[in-house]
Design a protein around this nucleic acid. Sequence first.
DNA 1: ACGAATTTGAAAGATTTTGGAAGATTATGC
DNA 2: GCATAATCTTCCAAAATCTTTCAAATTCGT
Lengths: 252, 252
Amino acid sequence: MQAEERQAKIAAYLQKVEFASLEELSQEVDVSQSTVRRDLTALETSGMVRRTHGGARIVNPRSDEFIFSARDTHQLTEKEAIGMACAHLLQPQQSVIIDAGTTVYHVARYLEEKKPQIITNSLPVANLYTASGQVEVVMSGGVVYPRLGVLVGPLAVESFSKIHADVAVMSAGGITMEGVTNSHGLLIEIQKAMMRGSRRVIFCLDHTKFGRQSISFLCGLESIHTIVTDHQAPHELVAALRAKGIEVVIAP
Amino acid sequence: MQAEERQAKIAAYLQKVEFASLEELSQEVDVSQSTVRRDLTALETSGMVRRTHGGARIVNPRSDEFIFSARDTHQLTEKEAIGMACAHLLQPQQSVIIDAGTTVYHVARYLEEKKPQIITNSLPVANLYTASGQVEVVMSGGVVYPRLGVLVGPLAVESFSKIHADVAVMSAGGITMEGVTNSHGLLIEIQKAMMRGSRRVIFCLDHTKFGRQSISFLCGLESIHTIVTDHQAPHELVAALRAKGIEVVIAP
DNA sequence: ACGAATTTGAAAGATTTTGGAAGATTATGC
DNA sequence: GCATAATCTTCCAAAATCTTTCAAATTCGT
């Protein structure tokens, strides 16, 4: 690698992490620490970074715009398994509405090869494919709900009311034999609009959602075509749902 | 291959990658490194590229206002100064339309304490405040334009047509006495809608934009109330703009 | 087609950059 | 406050890269 390119890489890396040790940097750009030191002094004279003992720090940190909640490790493997299984259910080139929620976010992650058209109100999902450009992503409008990165409000409802898609991939707070419930009342209207606009409705629900009830009622079981869950889901409830004519996919 | 054609190819390649090693370039155009060296010295005297040890780098990297890249350190300090200066122009609690573009992105960064209502079609801007929750952000709908992270298309235009804001903070590809131009035709309609919906229009343009013309015409000078730029902006053009009644703010 | 002028590729020597080591300096624990 | 460890600076040899030079190849004009 070239000196200049390397220095740019170091600067970019520091932009991302704000601070990095010498060892970290030398591994990142794959040169000796001596060279990193030299690069850092060069970058320091240009005013871009400040050296410290043991590393360097960016002068004007720029908050990284493309991070999705780092603390999302809850039931990660289950959610990934569900995500993959659900992605398998979709046909190439389909138009897919993706709900906002950590579980369905993982569905979106595995959709790239299906080259779908994704319609979503979730910023994290949209961020997934801004870089690649392989997947067409349509965002609804709306007010950004803090922390979750979901677009809500009348603008969002209106957007989805106008849209028709092949599939809606939904999440929820809980499911019982009485129906599906969710914790955020703001989302209910949007989710209803999503489901109305889709020919097929898939719910992605990990086993912790089974038998649980949240505050707001979303829909009855008759609105659901498919449920994707993991192998820890209670057998009786799965059997009962199947008896109601719902396809239940157990992710391995 | 001809010498000139080869040099053009080298220049084009460098435009794309910003810097490249001698080996890379010699493979790219399929000549010896000696020849590449000669070409590079020629290109250097013409001011187009700068040679470095081990390769070369483009002097004026295609300063595309609308490309968000990790290594966007291009005119970073100027853009930050402009961002701060422009943020100062706004009143607390105002509703502000923020255009999609690297310069105005920096305006958004400094807006938190004004507690504004932000309306935008830029994913990076929206991502800025999803975590904090201090600022209300409204997103237009639209199709995500790959790489740029901008929402475009009829849905976006329609969203902005319905919205009225106190201020619009805009970017552009270039400004001359004939008016403001932009490189992406897709954005023009959206930007026009943004400007129509605002009582005051502020353009943030770093000095490289002055005297430059992009492909698509956006608006005449009469539509502009304020321009924020940095101190390297050419004095004559600044004076001429002021003579037209436009407030020009020079960021320190 | 022939010779002059230019361009190209390669080699030799000069220069710069790199990686490591020794000694100096700064942080850390007790 | 002192000993210890970590980190930094300085220096040097090795590696990479650059410049210069020159013969072969190509292009151009006639």
